[in-house]
Design a protein around this nucleic acid. Structure first.
Lengths: 218, 218
DNA sequence: AATAAAAAGGTGAAAAACAGCTTTTGTTTT
DNA sequence: AAAACAAAAGCTGTTTTTCACCTTTTTATT
């Protein structure tokens, strides 16, 4: 059946140039048939409601305006469980990959991949529901290991969060205590608690931690 | 002459899929002729040394490993002043646009543009040396206005930069001194100097400063 | 009443912040 | 080539902040 009829796919990406390029590139392969393209998740939803035929594999970008790849993937997987999503992004950070897989993507491919890799991924994902390359398996493993080690996924009380946010400034701990209407000792308790919970050793570490976990925005 | 012979161009972008897509897309237009493609600035330099013909317009990405778009553009403009560079990126922040233009790019196009816009930009830039769309002119204006206000652009020596980057860690100043093979006193000089030059009052402030000015990446 | 969690307290050592001064090195000026 | 100058590197202190460890009080939970 693989050779008989082409795989119907769709492309969701906000970069027109990339989208058009991909279409042009894939049109050379008879194995795939592009049903539609969309510029973001919301756009995609509309295409679904009007499309005559429905794709089997979606090539999904992450960063998009209005409705991003995470939300779009989750929506598709909920409403069309038979459709498989192949994430296609330039981001290669753990957070993006993990979250995309958690949202229901069956595979993750970097935009720096080659055309044949993409084609292979599309075929594999249609047949098996997932496409696992080194990139993905490595990140999954790393995620598991880091989760097993530290255990806790950052749960912070309101005060701890506020404290961390105020740490990302030139305020001294004493001044932070003032701002929060608490004793400096209490602040010191927060500090110490967070230090050991997340293996942090300095105020600088606190700032980096807050930043990396997007607790504050620059 | 525009219609007689096609414009020789080259594509420098680390994302293979994007590159190939673009080639496939542009090959439909007889107005352009793709001489070569490269995955980053260094790769591009090699192509230049081996290429039979030389392109007139370069489609240049910014974020690339080894040698990025800024450096690559500066190199091209210095060694081949007749070649025009059209920046092709997803980044639309002032900093990237301004810096790319300063490096010698004649125009700046987002990857979310349409194919015809790209074609138009290529033609314009070949003929006039620059392609100024709303995106670019707006940023240029804004940059001018903001520069009139603040004035100072952060100039940092190599050591100061390295120092600032190392500050964004849990290393103590003494450890930073070790890493840089310098006396702690010298490190203290750097610190003091930067403190007063940029009105910073604490190590935390240094971290935030480095981050906001994109001296380091998380 | 027992328990757990949050807040407040104290002490001492290490690191960071700040001030002031000298020497070396490299560049421009004359 | 000497003088002048600026930038980088080095040194000696003092004060403040940060950090670690431990105890007590208060507040909420069961």
């Amino acid at each position: 059946m693989n050779t008989s009829n082409p795989i119907p796919i769709a492309i969701i990406d906000d970069h027109t140039l990339f989208r058009q390029g991909l279409i042009s590139l894939l049109s050379e392969f008879p194995e795939v048939d592009i049903i539609f393209e969309a510029s973001d998740g919301q756009d995609m939803q509309q295409r679904f409601s009007t499309a005559r035929t429905i794709p089997e594999v979606l090539l999904m970008d992450i960063t998009m305006p209005v409705m991003d790849g995470f939300a779009a993937t989750a929506w598709v997987r909920q409403h069309y469980p038979d459709i498989h999503v192949l994430a296609l992004s330039m981001r290669e950070d753990d957070k993006a990959i993990i979250r995309m897989l958690r949202s229901g993507a069956g595979g993750y491919l970097l935009k720096e991949s080659k055309a044949l890799e993409l084609l292979n991924a599309i075929k594999t994902i249609r047949e098996h529901g997932h496409f696992l390359n080194d990139l993905v398996t490595l990140r999954l493993l790393r995620n598991l290991q880091s989760n097993a080690g530290s255990g806790a996924d950052l749960e912070l009380s309101n005060n701890e969060l506020k404290f961390l946010q105020l740490c990302c400034s030139e305020l001294t701990y004493k001044e932070i205590a003032d701002q929060m209407n608490l004793s400096p000792h209490t602040i010191d308790n927060y500090r110490q608690e967070i230090f050991q919970r997340f293996n942090i050793k300095s105020r600088t570490g606190l700032v980096l931690f807050a930043l990396r976990n997007e607790l504050i925005s620059l």
